[in-house]
């Protein structure tokens, strides 16, 4: 009782003034995303810092990853082209393209699992928008992708893949991937902060997705009636809207529809989840 009176004495003058603009959870979630984008300097620097930290003080730096990708493509390319009875000169460019795009997709999802947990030090100290740390994951992975894609011109030159106007469509595909990546990473990051055994489960899903998506195999190898089913796999659709244009082919409308649908579905899941639990994230750390 005494406590109440004392508290009142500090606030006596303004006791009647109520905060006028009470925001709903949805509005604050929207503000978080908006401020997150406005804060581009923060996530840009954090993303660059992540890349630098991964290979600090090594000469090759980020290109270690690129090198490991080259080795993967070389080894798997030779073995699988024999296995699938595909000519090496078309199989390797195909594998190189799909695998590099896949590395981007899977990297965003796996990294997002730790997005908030990793940022504990920041989140507990300062009122930074939560979306900052999702965007940081995107920057990190797109930078990584920019390093890896350097391999493609060499592969294309070596195996005589001609430049094509469809490469511009690949840019459009990358924008869709960024959008899907943001939404999916947001969902993963929230759930993985709350449930700490989820990252392992996601890791498994990604592993399975690698094998059931047309990365090492071509859709044309499937029996005719089975082919349309491939695009039901959202990973496949997202992969193809970037990799197919890079290889000089336009993906069919169904692939774009499937990719567009995953944007919608993810948005419908991510939005309520983020609005509802955004402010709880710090408490789960």
């Amino acid at each position: 009782m005494e406590r109440m009176e004392h508290a009142a004495s500090v606030s006596a003058a303004q006791a009647a003034v109520e905060p006028s603009s009470e925001r709903t959870a949805g509005e604050r979630a929207w503000l978080d995303v908006k401020q997150g984008f406005e804060n581009w300097r923060v996530w840009w620097l954090l993303g660059i810092g992540d890349i630098r930290q991964r290979y600090r003080r090594s000469k090759l730096g980020q290109f270690w990853i690129t090198l490991s990708i080259v080795i993967f493509i070389g080894a798997i390319g030779v073995v699988y082209s024999a296995l699938f009875k595909q000519p090496v000169e078309t199989y390797i460019p195909y594998l190189a393209t799909t695998y590099i795009v896949w590395t981007l997709l899977s990297g965003i999802i796996t990294d997002s699992a730790g997005a908030f947990v990793q940022a504990e030090g920041f989140l507990r100290q300062q009122a930074l928008p939560k979306s900052t740390f999702i965007l940081r994951v995107l920057v990190r992975n797109f930078l990584s992708f920019a390093h890896n894609i350097v391999v493609l011109p060499f592969v294309f030159l070596l195996f005589g893949v001609a430049p094509s106007w469809t490469w511009f469509a690949a840019l459009g595909g990358l924008i869709v991937v960024a959008l899907v990546g943001f939404l999916a990473a947001l969902i993963c990051a929230i759930l993985c902060t709350r449930f700490r055994d989820l990252p392992q489960i996601i890791q498994n899903v990604i592993q399975v997705a690698f094998f059931i998506s047309p990365i090492t195999w071509r859709v044309e190898l499937l029996d005719e009636p089975l082919r349309p089913w491939v695009v039901l796999n959202p990973f496949a659709a997202l992969l193809q809207i970037v990799s197919e244009p890079l290889l000089g082919r336009m993906p069919d409308p169904i692939t774009y529809t499937s990719a567009g649908l995953s944007v919608l579905v993810l948005a419908f899941v991510a939005w309520p989840l983020f609005s509802r639990f955004r402010q709880r994230i710090v408490y789960w750390l």
Binding site: Q125, Q279, R280
Partner: peptide
Amino acid sequence: GAYEPSRGVAHIDGKVSSLLDMTM
């Protein structure tokens, strides 16, 4: 502003600087 109250209202107006963790 790092913790939003789990119940009740916090309204903070103005540029906040917390020297809680300076090396952050």
